[in-house]
Nucleic acid binder design. Structure first.
Length: 364
DNA sequence: TAGGCCATCTGGTCCT
DNA sequence: AGGACCAGATGGCCTA
């Protein structure tokens, strides 16, 4: 028995839903709260469901289970007059012929306990507590997602990735890093970005590209100013001017259509040729499952992370990252750690990004 | 205004 | 019995 307190004040019509067993179909009950009670009907109510919900409920229930107002009011009136337990002996609405007052067959099986005032209050209280717990749980989940946002590429406080995009990017990131570690090869930026962006929405792709400096503005400026305004042009930019990705632009910059800096790019073939393995997305639809990338953390990489305390708390993470050599030994740079954002400080091997500050600014 | 994203409520299920 | 987890529903907010 699931009595539902209608706590939503001001709602004139409450829709309840229940998934029918084995069918997944949704059935609706439209309940009008009565003046005397805010309780809605239990699904098992024989008047409404007649039999056990889901057992014999018609598949075409949608649209057919809407209880008319009058019936609902009558039912709720009945509910609102629920007696205390001590009155249950008198009970009731059952007639000698085995039918209730509505002429419907009396329900068999164990009689349900009466909803006393105290029980109703208790149910309400438990519902409120459950809501609070659920809120806290979701807040914890969101906090974890925020933490995840900070350790995947392209963290931005002002332009937060959505939940789903965060998870997708994290998945791609893990895959890419694992491939790098297992293969021991240094990726070109484009392939890396393509891996990261696989399956992401266009705005997120733009964001990632912007973070990783694969943006249209640079490309165009390279095209226009072929004299290369800076001498230390990175290999990434060489690749970048060779490969083209559809619609990669600055996160908040010119529109894709307006710029169109890239030609189409076959991600899958590029990925597979680079990583010498099957692309997670192209090779198998079961990427999330058994084809998870091999884990190898004795490599040379370290992640940017802004919450060392959190990692320190975890033996799992600690074991991984304690084995990573000091950043200063990896190469390049005496740049502050907070400036760096994996993997570019590592992969460039002395090829410094001319717009690194821009990236850092973006991250901040 | 439609669509995406999100927070919240809610009932069901599973587990302790 | 109660908590954790899950998924559906709903309404609000924002943006193209």
């Amino acid at each position: 028995m699931a009595w539902v307190p209608a706590l939503a004040v001001g709602i004139s019509v409450i829709s309840l839903s229940a998934r029918q067993e084995n069918s997944g179909e949704i059935c609706y009950l439209l309940i009008i709260p009565s003046k005397s009670t805010m309780l809605t009907l239990p699904f098992e109510d024989p008047v409404i469901m007649d039999t056990q919900f889901g057992a014999s409920f018609p598949r075409d229930c949608v649209g057919e289970t809407k209880v008319n107002k009058q019936e609902t009011f009558e039912k709720e009136e009945t509910l609102s007059h629920t007696m205390d337990e001590e009155d249950s002996e008198k009970d009731e609405d059952e007639h000698e012929d085995g039918h209730d007052e509505n002429g419907l067959p009396r329900r068999r099986g164990p009689r349900k306990k009466k909803m006393t005032k105290a029980r109703v209050d208790r149910v309400k209280m438990r519902r409120m507590e459950a809501n609070a717990r659920e809120r806290n749980r979701m807040h914890g989940l969101n906090n974890a997602l925020d933490s995840l946002r900070k350790v995947v590429p392209c963290y931005s406080k002002t332009q937060k990735l959505s939940k789903i995009e965060t998870l997708r990017l994290a998945k791609n990131y893990i895959w890419a890093l694992s491939e790098i570690l297992s293969s021991g090869k240094r990726p070109d930026l484009l392939s890396f970005v393509q891996t990261l962006c696989k399956g992401l929405s266009q705005p997120t792709t733009n964001l990632v590209a912007g973070c990783l400096q694969l943006n249209a503005r640079n490309f165009i400026s390279d095209q226009i100013n072929t004299e290369a305004s800076f001498s230390g042009r990175s290999t990434y930019e060489s690749v970048y001017s060779t490969y083209h990705s559809p619609g990669v632009g600055t996160p908040s910059g010119p529109s894709v259509d307006a710029v169109k800096p890239f030609r189409s790019f076959n991600y899958c073939s590029s990925y597979e040729s680079f990583y010498e393995s099957v692309s997670p997305e192209c090779g198998s639809p079961q990427f999330d499952g058994p084809l998870s990338p091999p884990m190898n953390f004795n490599g040379i990489f370290s992640l940017k992370h802004e919450e060392p305390v959190e990692y320190g708390k975890s033996c799992h993470y600690g074991a991984r990252y304690c084995a990573v050599p000091p950043r200063s030994s990896i190469g390049q740079s005496g740049r502050a750690q907070t400036e760096l954002h994996f993997p570019y400080d590592i992969h460039l091997r002395g090829q410094f990004y001319p717009a690194q500050e821009e990236i850092n600014t973006f991250h901040n």
